[in-house]
Simulated assay, not measured.
Amino acid sequence: MVNNTMDTNNVVLVGKVREELKFSHSIYGEGFYNTTLEIPRLSDVTDVLPITISERLLQNMELEEGVDLMISGQLRSYNKMVEGSNRLILTTFVREVDFIISEEENKNPNQIYLDGFICKKPSYRTTPFGREITDLLIAVNRPYNKSDYIPCIAWGRNARFAQGLEIGQRIKLWGRIQSREYQKKYPNGEVENKIAYEVSISKMESVEKEEIEESVKD
């Protein structure tokens, strides 16, 4: 059984603060704030990703719009009622934060590692251009009987591998978090622009039953 949540859900992001901090919520007297990081890809596209940070980490830091940061933490999910429907919200929960002080820190600006379980039947499809894609929903456990449910997308050879995974199967994956704009069309003809967040998988592997049993013994 996997107990160390930092070993199963690990995110490192390097980017520019996109907007001012906004108060999110308070737990046991500790305040948390939301903002977004703008992170470049190898192409001209950028990902704008939400982050949540504790007021404890903000002490003695001038965290303003336009500042370059390196953060590490976990990708968390929670459900929120939006316009009468339940939506899955994703955010990177920050555990460590620092200013960028060298170009070396910017070489791999968007990294995530997850160790979790398939909790929905994988959905395989091909694009009009013949590109293979498989959508996954991964449950990653954390303490106090909580889990984060994280949408992931696999491409090409990984997509072919992922389509054969079964519900409950444990997998490990590496990749990056991406933001994706799309349009939602309503029955009345109205079109709304929305943003989805998901993990784009670059590498993945299934965990064999024997390895899981050995982990339980340890």
Rank of each mutant, 00 (worst) to 15 (best):
L63Q: 04
E166P: 00
V82A: 07
K185C: 01
G84K: 13
I177K: 09
G84H: 12
I133D: 00
E208K: 10
P122S: 11
P40V: 09
I53S: 02
L136P: 10
Q111T: 10
E96R: 14
S43M: 05
F161Q: 12
E103S: 11
R180D: 06
L165V: 03
S43P: 00
R41S: 13
P50Q: 10
E210H: 08
D44S: 13
Y113S: 13
G31F: 05
N106C: 10
G130C: 01
Y78C: 03
E166L: 14
L58C: 06
E213A: 09
D68N: 09
N9W: 12
S202R: 07
G164V: 04
I71D: 02
R176L: 01
I27A: 07
G29F: 10
S77G: 08
E30S: 11
G168S: 11
R125C: 00
N60F: 12
L88P: 00
I118K: 07
N34V: 03
A154Y: 09
G164W: 08
V67G: 01
G130P: 00
L57V: 06
P187V: 02
R76P: 00
K120A: 11
V17S: 03
Q183Y: 04
L114S: 07
V67F: 01
E19I: 00
T92R: 02
Y197I: 08
L88I: 11
M70Y: 01
V97T: 10
V199D: 13
E211R: 14
S26V: 02
K172L: 10
N145L: 03
N158A: 09
D68P: 00
E19M: 12
P40D: 14
E19D: 14
W174L: 12
L42D: 06
Y144W: 04
E211Y: 07
V82Q: 14
P151S: 11
E105R: 14
L63F: 10
S206V: 11
F93D: 09
G189Q: 09
E104H: 10
W174V: 02
V11M: 06
A162S: 14
K209H: 08
T127I: 01
I150E: 12
P50L: 12
E166F: 10
N193Y: 04
S43Q: 05
T91Y: 08
S102I: 05
I150A: 10
N193G: 05
R142Q: 14
